[in-house]
Design a protein around this nucleic acid. Structure first.
Length: 170
DNA sequence: ACCCCGATCGTA
DNA sequence: ACGATCGGGGTT
């Protein structure tokens, strides 16, 4: 069953942890989420909302359960899921995805995931609660969950807000 | 108009 | 360890 607003509205660290093992569906693709990171509020120096609401970051201030897709390093896109309440900017970055359909492939890294799925800035602020072919649903194909500092950032390294799991069969 | 920087990735 | 590559956001 598709995850509802009540799931995404939870504290971002809870959503980041609980998204591990869930199934992401986008068009013909289906995969199990294996790695996430939390970005929480304007006070989090690594969160894009640390610069306030802008042309790029406005979806972070919207309702939970929408996407936030941004362009980085001149060639990559990254997919986030917006969390918590309206006007509180926070999201979970999807960093690892074990693709099941149409052909098995493990994707480690947010840029690789968006490249494979074909997600770009045009896919920011899409509503995972309503979209016909873009949503997240239950699943629990994960084990050995660990929590570490976030990767690839230069600020906010003190916060252990990355969640990593290993894919496993049900 | 200009400058610096970045939630990455592939190659060395 | 490093370069590719270019938009975002702040400053002049």
């Amino acid at each position: 069953m598709r995850l509802q607003q009540s799931f995404f509205e939870q504290p971002t660290l809870v959503v980041a942890r609980e998204l591990l093992g869930k199934r992401l569906v986008f068009q013909s693709y289906q995969g199990i989420i294996t790695e996430t990171e939390a970005y929480i509020g304007e006070e989090d120096p690594a969160c894009h909302a640390s610069k306030g609401k802008t042309k790029r970051t406005w979806p972070l201030y919207g309702p939970a359960g929408r996407t936030y897709v941004y362009f980085i390093y001149g060639m990559y896109y990254c997919l986030n899921i917006v969390t918590e309440t309206i006007d509180f900017p926070a999201a979970v970055l999807i960093r690892g995805l074990h693709i099941m359909t149409p052909s098995p492939e493990h994707l480690n890294g947010p840029g690789k995931i968006c490249r494979k799925l074909g997600l770009t800035c045009g896919d920011t602020n899409r509503d995972l609660l309503c979209e016909e072919n873009f949503y997240i649903t239950s699943g629990n194909c994960i084990k050995n969950i660990t929590q570490t500092p976030r990767i690839g950032i230069r600020q906010g390294l003190d916060k252990p807000w990355r969640f990593l799991g290993e894919y496993c069969e049900d």
